[in-house]
């Protein structure tokens, strides 16, 4: 179970990283094409005129997908920020209780988000919504990716909730505290 979950979060994180790499590569390709055209032009040759079609739209969709797919992995590594000043000042017992409440609330909110964004994606699919540009991207793809990311986040919150109930602290507290001590840089 533990391994399966961790694998799931890692998969989301890596998919997200992949989206970011694809954005970088598409933009890079476009820039290289422009440089190539400038060289051709300087040599009085006809320009290639190569364009990455719908670059802006596709990159935007990839960014939306990337942002949500990484949510769970980012939570598990303690990188989502929050104010822990007050929680830290409390005695351990109370602190565990409040941590659990915050996690339960997070799970509730993420669950609601999953339902809402999932419904949004479903509607795009039913009405066959596509992007307005040259390449017709079905909008359900990036939106479904967002819904999947939100679902992963819900699972991650529930996962941390059980850990906190069992051990009194979320598993990412160590990472969060490490950052808090300014060790990372």
């Amino acid at each position: 179970m533990r391994r399966a979950l961790d694998l799931l979060y890692a998969a989301g994180l890596w998919l997200s990283a992949l989206c970011i790499l694809v954005i970088a590569s598409l933009v890079g390709l476009q820039v290289v094409a422009r440089i190539w055209d400038a060289i051709l032009q300087a040599l009085d040759l006809p320009r290639s005129g190569f364009v990455v079609l719908s670059l802006a739209e596709i990159s935007g969709y990839l960014f939306a997908a990337a942002s949500f797919l990484a949510l769970a992995g980012t939570l598990k590594s303690g990188a989502h920020i929050r104010v822990t000043m007050l929680v830290n000042a409390l005695p351990q017992r109370v602190r565990a209780l409040i941590e659990a409440a915050a996690l339960a609330f997070g799970a509730l909110a993420a669950g609601f988000g999953t339902w809402a964004i999932g419904g949004y994606a479903l509607e795009s699919w039913r009405f066959g919504e596509v992007s307005p540009g040259l390449v017709q991207v079905p909008l359900v793809w990036p939106q479904a990716a967002m819904a999947a990311g939100a679902a992963l986040l819900t699972i991650a919150f529930l996962d941390e909730l059980t850990i906190t109930v069992r051990t009194g602290r979320p598993s990412f507290r160590a990472a969060e505290d490490a950052v808090a001590l300014g060790r990372e840089g």
């Binding site: 006809p46 320009r47 005129g49 364009v51 079609l53 719908s54 670059l55 802006a56 307005p132 540009g133 040259l134």
Partner: peptide
Amino acid sequence: RGLRFRTYNPGTARIAELSGATPVQVE
């Protein structure tokens, strides 16, 4: 022909294609 012509939808893209202009996409 060869002019960098802004296209933002299938219609403008087709104009560029048929006239030999280079389609470019700019916000």
